[in-house]
Computed example of a mutant assay.
Amino acid sequence: MAGPMISHSPAAPPRPGPGRRVVLGRRVVLGAALGWGAAGLAGCGAGREPVQRLRLATGPEGGPYNAFGRALAAATQGHAPAVVPLATAASVDNLHRLDDGSVELALAMADTAEDAVRGRNSFGRPLPVAALARIYVNYTHLLAPADGPVRTVADLAGRRVAVGADGSGVQVVARRLLETASLTGGAGRVAEVPLALGESVAALCAGRVDALFWSGGVPTPAVAELARELPLRVLALDGPAGVLRARYGPVYTAAEFPAGVYGLREPVGTVGVGNYLLARTDVPADAVCAVLRTVFDAWRDLLREVTAGARLEPRFAVSTGAVPLHPGATAYYRSVYG
């Protein structure tokens, strides 16, 4: 893997010894903890009746967010708080559900989460949400039949392209990529078809769309299965990655599909986007601490069906950019890592 994606599997941090403190690499962890004071640092302790359950907005059935949510629910079974996963349209939908109080926890892509806290694009005002952790990185897939006419992003002009389901984070990054290529207006405008992953795969196989966007782990099982039935071209997006980063900031990183995945003979550059586990700001800090204990104890199981080869460790998890860490998350990281 190239570029910042190395942080997807970084070296494990040193364990704290006597008089030694592990630096987590995010100033807000220390600064915010000072601001919250003793109350924040006590967040991982008892002192109130424990929250019994937390509803988690995930994503469509069969997708990686839903798989993560089901695995987290299994890991919390018999404990408080128990996590209850709910199938949704994913990132944008999930953040609106956090805002209206129909869930307490949610998964969302980093770019969409940053839009929410800044009150822009799909969000008319800043939403009161906070991060528990950055859990893994999505790879932006732009796929077309290997024997078809679409070889570059420019070849999408005037064609039908599946851009992800309405309310998904896939649509956000897909539309931004199309904008950078001047494919959202004029004669060369792409005909956007809003479809979830399973529908997109079926449409590509049937020739109802010429290409599809997807944002997920590597390999995404549904895409790997598609590649066994239909030889695929994975379009390079390393050029647009730099444009997106310059325009929207470090929520976008350079990434690479490795040779071998989806039948690739050589690596292909693309856009990486983090995924955050989020909470309403009024979720009690001790409940957040309990969830994070489970996440860090069970991360291998949580990520097994989501993205191959990923791992979770604190220096990666606290990198949530403009989205502030929840006080309970800060309390957890400081109580465990000093």
Rank of each mutant, 00 (worst) to 15 (best):
G249M: 01
E49I: 12
N121A: 15
G47W: 02
Y248C: 13
R334H: 11
L24G: 07
S91T: 10
D166G: 14
A116E: 01
V92Q: 02
V261L: 02
D99S: 15
R26Q: 14
E104L: 14
Y337K: 07
V306H: 06
T281N: 03
D210L: 07
A211F: 01
L86N: 01
A11H: 11
L235V: 13
V261T: 11
A317N: 07
V161W: 04
A181M: 08
R334Q: 15
R20T: 13
A259L: 06
V251W: 06
R311A: 14
L105P: 08
R134A: 09
H96G: 08
V117K: 00
V283G: 06
G69Y: 02
P10Q: 06
L178G: 09
G328Y: 01
R48D: 14
L156W: 03
A322P: 00
A241T: 12
V103G: 08
P194H: 13
S102I: 10
A39R: 13
L237V: 07
G198Y: 04
G47F: 08
G101K: 08
V283Q: 04
A144W: 03
N275T: 15
V150Q: 02
P194R: 09
P221W: 00
G249W: 01
R208D: 14
S7M: 15
R208K: 11
C44P: 00
D155M: 09
T58M: 05
A67Q: 11
E61R: 12
A32C: 04
G35T: 09
F296H: 09
